Simulated scan of single mutants.
Amino acid sequence: MRRLLFLLLMGTGIVSAQKTMQLSEGQESPSASLKEVAWIEGSWSGEAFGGTAEEIWSAPLGDSMMFVFRLVNDNKVSFYEVGHIQQLENSLILQLKHFDGNLKGWEDKIETIDFKLVKLEKNKVYFEGLTMELVDKNHMNVYVLIEENGEAEEILFAYSKKP
């Protein structure tokens, strides 16, 4: 499967997409707490990239909410992500690492993909290049700005909460 790389653009406002945002140059992340994004907790699944995408999020604990993600195509894991939303001083950051189906890391062992907080609304959180919105108690949309072959595209992951 082709590798997906998250695009972290240095720009202002909304970047070639309708749902994701970027911090302006010199702009700092706003104040926020994990309590304000605790609605993300749960087990979510949906279709993406021709397969099944699944995310499992923990409740806030120890200044973080951890998650795991997997994409399954043709009954085989295409890739995993492991990460967290971390309380960092008075704001939040989403950090993750990618792994192939055999748990071989994509990033160097000390490298993470970081998404700084841009804006927070009730039931919606904007990180740089990644937006999460609670549609209702059983549905969540995640929009991710992805770069592939020099092209940027916003991808929707429409999740349903698993019982």
Rank of each mutant, 00 (worst) to 15 (best):
N149F: 13
L134K: 14
N102Q: 15
I14W: 10
W44F: 06
A59I: 10
R70G: 08
P30M: 08
V144M: 14
G129E: 06
Q18P: 03
D100F: 01
A48R: 00
G11L: 00
K122G: 04
R2H: 06
Y159G: 01
F127A: 14
E47K: 15
I40F: 04
W44K: 04
A59D: 03
S58G: 08
S160P: 02
R2V: 05
G51K: 07
N90M: 14
T20F: 14
V15P: 05
G83P: 14
Q18N: 13
S58Y: 01
E151F: 12
G42A: 13
Q27L: 06
K161D: 00
Q27V: 01
S33I: 09
L96A: 13
D136G: 07
E153Y: 12
A59P: 00
N102K: 13
Q86Y: 13
L117K: 09
E148C: 03
T12K: 06
L23N: 02
E55G: 01
N90W: 12
M65S: 04
M140D: 05
S91M: 11
M140V: 11
M140G: 03
W57T: 03
M21L: 08
A32H: 06
E153W: 09
N73F: 01
T131M: 15
W57M: 12
G42Y: 01
P60E: 08
P30C: 07
I110P: 13
L120F: 06
D100P: 07
E133K: 12
A38V: 05
P30W: 03
S58N: 09
N75V: 09
K35S: 13
N123R: 14
I14G: 11
F69G: 00
I113A: 09
L92G: 05
K109I: 07
L34E: 03
E151D: 10
G11T: 12
I113W: 01
D114H: 08
F127W: 06
Q86C: 14
L94T: 02
V125Y: 08
W39R: 03
M132I: 14
K122M: 09
A59E: 11
A17C: 13
E128H: 06
E55W: 04
Y80D: 10
V77L: 06
Y143L: 04
K161V: 00
Q27A: 13
Y143E: 01
W44H: 05
Q22C: 09
F69L: 00
I14S: 15
Q22S: 11
N73C: 10
L71I: 08
G42Q: 11
E154N: 08
G150P: 02
V72F: 10
V118A: 05
T12N: 12
V37E: 02
I14P: 02
V82N: 07
R3G: 03
M140R: 03
W39Q: 09
V135Q: 05
D136Y: 04
I155M: 10
L94K: 15
R70Y: 13
D74Y: 13
P60Y: 07
L8Y: 08
L9M: 07
